[in-house]
Computed example of a mutant assay.
Amino acid sequence: MGKREHIYEIIAENIRKERRRLGITQAELAERADVSLDTIKSVENGRRAMSLDTYLNIVHALESSPTVLMSQQHPEKHIERFAFMMNRCDEREIEFALHMIEQILRGQEDYLSE
């Protein structure tokens, strides 16, 4: 298998995983990405390459980033997802989200140390 086929398989698997993480169907993803259902099915099954526009539409519909969907390992996945979500927020909302995360992590440390 060549490098090109390998990256298509990685992208297909990541699109499927991210769609399932969001709890949406292939039809819902197709609608959100403004592509046909057949396109989503073919892409997820690794049977079809896609244009850059289609890829970016799918990335946006999945609230992800282009690099995350191309990566076999996702060490930065959660940071990129958080950054993507925070792009939609104002400064107060970001501060609130960070405060809540800090509280959750402190509680997790207390809970796990018992």
Rank of each mutant, 00 (worst) to 15 (best):
M1C: 09
K3M: 11
K3C: 03
R4I: 14
R4Y: 00
E5W: 00
E5S: 11
Y8M: 12
E9G: 12
E9V: 06
I10S: 05
I10F: 01
E13C: 03
R19Y: 01
R19G: 06
R20G: 01
R20E: 15
G23P: 12
I24W: 03
Q26F: 07
A27P: 01
E28I: 00
R32H: 02
R32T: 02
A33V: 08
D34G: 09
S36R: 04
L37P: 00
D38I: 06
I40L: 06
K41I: 03
V43E: 02
E44T: 10
G46Y: 07
G46E: 11
G46W: 07
R48N: 05
M50H: 04
M50P: 03
M50L: 11
M50Q: 10
L52P: 00
L52W: 01
D53I: 04
T54L: 02
T54V: 08
Y55V: 01
Y55P: 01
L56S: 02
L56D: 02
V59W: 04
H60A: 12
S65L: 04
S65N: 05
M70H: 05
Q72V: 14
H74W: 05
H74L: 15
H74F: 04
E76Q: 14
K77D: 09
K77A: 15
E80K: 13
R81F: 13
F82M: 15
F84W: 12
N87A: 13
R88F: 11
R88Y: 12
R88V: 05
R88S: 12
C89R: 05
R92I: 08
R92C: 05
E93A: 15
E93C: 10
I94H: 14
E95C: 08
E95S: 14
E95T: 06
I101C: 06
E102H: 14
Q103S: 11
L105I: 12
Q108D: 09
E109C: 05
E109G: 03
D110A: 09
L112V: 08
S113H: 09
